[in-house]
């Protein structure tokens, strides 16, 4: 059997990975297996940590595999401009280098976050009081708009008018906040 990564050397390492019930088989030569990183080094001595698991999980990402194939010859490195961590390094370590990495790796992260957090990719929890000031307003407005739709569908127009006024008030607050911030 020939290594499925380089298609040159004979495959000497065979792995079966099962994640969320999905089975995948790999046949690699030693060299490619090493390049693929920690996940394929199965020396029992160096215990299997959550890091390895995570790196494996991240490597499973189909967009990345596709990305690797596409950029077979031309080097196309995604890198964080603040801490200079590359996307490849992130995949290997399972850790970001700084807060800016989240922006730098952008769209490629969404499927990973979905996988890690049962399909979720946006925050619904606490917002810091000080730096998140206008965000509180935005969330409030969103909620009220949602309420407004429901009330209109029930044809309770008097109540709807009240909520509409409330939304306007919050929106004007949001605008003054923004101008004040600049």
């Amino acid at each position: 059997m020939i290594c499925e990564e380089c298609n040159q050397r004979p495959a000497s390492l065979h792995f079966t990975k099962i994640i969320n019930g999905e089975k995948a088989e790999y046949h690699l030569c030693e060299k490619c297996a090493q390049e693929k990183g920690d996940m394929f080094i199965t020396n029992g001595a160096t215990g299997f940590s959550i890091n390895n698991l995570l790196a494996g999980l991240l490597n499973m990402n189909p967009t990345i595999q596709k990305h690797e194939q596409d950029s077979f010859q031309k080097e196309n490195i995604v890198q964080c401009d603040q801490c200079s961590m590359t996307f490849q390094q992130f995949i290997k370590l399972g850790r970001f280098g700084c807060a800016n990495c989240y922006k730098a790796f952008g769209d490629q992260l969404t499927p990973i976050l979905r996988r890690l957090h049962s399909g979720n990719s946006s925050h619904n929890g606490k917002i810091p009081a000080r730096i998140g000031g206008s965000l509180h307003l935005k969330k409030n407005i969103e909620q009220l708009k949602h309420q407004l739709k429901e009330i209109i569908s029930k044809e309770e127009f008097e109540k709807a008018a009240q909520i509409r006024d409330e939304i306007r008030l919050l929106e004007s607050q949001l605008n003054t906040n923004h101008e004040g911030g600049k």
């Binding site: 995570l54 399972g94 850790r95 970001f96 807060a99 989240y102 922006k103 992260l109 990973i112 976050l113 890690l116 957090h117 979720n120 990719s121 946006s122 925050h123 619904n124 929890g125 606490k126 917002i127 810091p128 730096i131 998140g132 965000l135």
Partner: peptide, 20 residues
């Protein structure tokens, strides 16, 4: 000043902790 993003919440070193 915390590292916080409107979309994905509190930013953490490991992606398994991000959000809350």
């Amino acid at each position: 000043d915390y590292a916080f993003d409107e979309g994905i919440g509190y930013l953490t070193s490991c992606p398994t902790n991000v959000g809350t």
